[in-house]
Design a protein around this nucleic acid. Structure first.
Lengths: 240, 240
DNA sequence: TAGTGGTCTAGACCACCGA
DNA sequence: CGGTGGTCTAGACCACTAG
């Protein structure tokens, strides 16, 4: 895992930042970091770039590398940003994983929409996995996911009652590290209201999209409806 | 603008992709591209990386570089992804810019929350800019933005009735190219319902965050409430 | 003007995919 | 096995910021 040079640098910097080592919010310059870690400046740049993507730091040409003060504060209860590991840690609350209730689990031929999203041939089968996630007694997400059978032929109901991605990671060495999501909002329907404990006027957040493994293979198409108070998506966008 | 090597490569590839040059969705390999464009492989990698960030393409080790078929389809009416230029083009519909109605425009001392978000000293002044954006007769966004006076001392009401970012770009050579946003949903309030023509049960999408210039300077803190049907945020996330 | 990030090159070796 | 992306290095020069 950490046998890559730039990964080592990422981890080290992340730790140092979280420990508050850089009180003035300024990191050493790239050349110094390269020497400290005994790596090339390119590798330092690659590592810093990763932290920039996450919104942890930002750079200013001619001035230096700085910690984003907002990053340290903006840690919502249930967020999606994947601090370090993978999408595994998408939904967390103080490091605690949510409870999962399985609402439905079956195998069916992929509908055209799903076929396309997951790059499947007509007639290929997918699991449909319907789950409800909750923290303590507050449900916050209804999830309707589709996973190609051929990618995980041995999936069982027990496995999906836990974290599917954790299973893939630990038992199969498949890491889910990319996603392509569309985020929107919607009026809640009867089912939403019942499952998420919502009043009729209260809306849901909707997230829909595809998750990819670190090898670029699409592994899940998912449609998620979230309690509006618990949807909080942070993005950091750098164009160009 | 396009005097950078990797920018040249980005533009060229983007054009070729949109023109459908790669019918099989597969791009030439990195070494070939490097030769074609007469640049180093590193520069090709940097350009490809940019396209990956935008979700246009993805790579598979040992196999090649491929166009994301979803990218070509997922072009919502009002989206936020900034294809190429800057945040300028955030809200577009068939290349048409929205109508803007100015609801309020004044100068006031920055509140603590705003101070922090924009890295201001206590007592510094900000413009508060309240606007309503619409396409044709359908309003879709209420915007409450704060911009440091010292960054744009000569701002007038006329300028904000158009695109502020366009003005900054064309007249001041300031490019707004980064954002740090939090996306959520909320029940609509009376004002939302009136301005956005919503029924009481219909929700709003909420986007709040900071925009940065290409120099890393925070230039606007913005709170946006959107008609739920017109909020569609696409993200492509690659962890690590 | 010195410090710092931005860009760019040339080349080496590794890891993975598919035929 | 050949093709392809992934990682990594060493070094050069440019562009911007700040004192």
């Amino acid at each position: 895992m950490a046998d890559l040079v730039y990964q080592r640098v990422i981890s080290a910097l992340q730790q140092q930042i979280n420990q508050g080592k850089f009180a003035d919010l300024k990191l050493p310059n790239e050349r110094v970091l390269a020497e400290e870690f005994n790596v090339s400046r390119s590798s330092v740049k690659k590592a810093l770039n990763s932290l920039i993507q996450r919104g942890m730091i930002f750079q200013k040409q001619g001035a230096g590398t700085f910690i984003n003060p907002l990053y340290l504060k903006n840690r919502p209860m249930y967020n999606i940003s994947g601090d370090n590991v993978g999408v595994t840690d998408m939904y967390q609350k103080d490091g605690q994983h949510p409870d999962i209730q399985v609402l439905g689990f079956k195998v069916l031929p992929a509908k055209p929409e799903i076929q396309e999203a997951l790059f499947l041939e007509p007639g290929e089968f997918v699991y449909e996995i319907q789950r409800l996630r909750a923290f303590d007694d507050q449900p916050f997400m209804i999830e309707d996911g589709f996973v190609p059978v051929k990618l995980v032929p041995d999936l069982t109901e027990k496995m999906i009652a836990g974290s599917l991605y954790n299973y893939l990671q630990e038992s199969r060495n498949i890491f889910v590290t990319r996603s392509f999501l569309t985020i929107s909002a919607d009026v809640s329907n009867k089912q939403d209201q019942k499952l998420l404990k919502l009043k009729p006027v209260e809306p849901v957040g909707v997230m829909e999209g595809i998750f990819f493994t670190d090898r670029g293979t699409p592994i899940e198409f998912s449609h998620m409806r979230l309690h509006y108070k618990f949807m909080r998506y942070n993005t950091f966008t750098a164009l160009n």
